[in-house]
């Protein structure tokens, strides 16, 4: 079976080639799709290879000496996770927690954001951090280009080509995760938190569902980290997988929420 491989050299060419997204497989860094191709788990008919599309960038207005002036940060969809590790927590810390140096050098923001969850375990490490940051995702697909909040984007992410992600730099942020030995190739559970300039606290979790989830009840109790930890359990329905059980996730989540909230208080 022959594969039609399209290699755009700009974002606009990528958008045109993607079209409505039907019957097209996107490869950015390759860390997700190439495994599947190597093991012949599926045979794509058309592939959009983004390696040369020029969509790897971080636009971060800088005042001086690395001090962000509060303007919106915009990250291109094919920016490798290694480049994100320099950003403030939670996104920087979350990116640094993914895999190892070499995989972080290849894996991309867009791939992490858009990959469909495999049935056997969670994926999309960055989703929780981007929920905490109240990020906007610009994407294209069947109904054309649009920007939407990440929570609206995630449920239909498999049908969209992410173009970039933008967010306001947080006043404070924190990230806490179940420690992941290398042999575990995904993060079983991680919590991200961010405080905006007006003091609003947002919390996101990765590993508690098919994609990142906002912890609304925990946010409402954010002034009391102990209570917020307990409240977080009402925001999610945990599942078992090969590494940890749903029961263990329920024991772990309140601890991670408390750790994130305490770290943000200490850092603010």
């Amino acid at each position: 079976m022959s594969v039609d491989v399209v290699i755009p050299e700009s974002e606009s060419e990528a958008v045109e080639a993607y079209g409505d997204g039907s019957d097209i497989t996107v490869i950015a860094g390759g860390t997700i799709v190439m495994q599947l191709l190597n093991y012949q788990r599926f045979e794509p008919s058309k592939v959009l290879l983004l390696a040369h599309a020029g969509m790897s960038y971080i636009n971060m207005p800088v005042k001086e000496q690395g001090q962000n002036d509060g303007s919106t940060v915009t990250v291109g969809a094919t920016t490798p996770l290694a480049d994100l590790t320099v950003l403030a927590s939670p996104l920087g810390a979350c990116a640094a927690n993914v895999a190892d140096d070499e995989i972080r050098g290849q894996a991309t923001l867009g791939g992490n954001l858009c990959s469909p969850a495999p049935p056997e375990h969670p994926s999309g490490d960055l989703q929780g951090a981007l929920i905490a940051l109240d990020a906007m995702v610009r994407s294209t697909g069947a109904d054309g280009e649009k920007s939407e909040q990440i929570e609206d984007f995630l449920p239909h992410r498999s049908d969209r080509l992410a173009l970039d992600v933008s967010f306001e730099p947080p006043a404070s942020g924190a990230f806490a995760a179940f420690r992941r030995p290398h042999a575990h190739h995904y993060t079983p559970l991680a919590v991200s938190g961010a405080t905006s300039a007006d003091g609003t606290v947002r919390l996101g979790v990765t590993g508690a569902g098919d994609f990142g989830i906002r912890l609304n009840a925990a946010e409402a109790a954010a002034d009391d980290p102990e209570a917020a930890g307990e409240a977080s359990l009402t925001d999610v329905t945990m599942a078992d997988d090969a590494i940890i059980s749903g029961w263990y996730r329920e024991q772990l989540l309140p601890t991670l929420v408390k750790r994130v909230l305490n770290e943000m208080k200490d850092g603010s």
Partner: peptide, 29 residues
């Protein structure tokens, strides 16, 4: 492993270590 998990295929691509099993060759033309 052909899945990016073992590191045995690591090579330098333009001076940076990368997993060659996960890179379609057209991406590094």
């Amino acid at each position: 492993c052909h899945a990016g998990g073992c590191g045995a295929c690591t090579v330098m691509v333009d001076g940076k270590p990368r997993r060659s099993c996960l890179i379609p060759v057209a991406a590094v033309d």
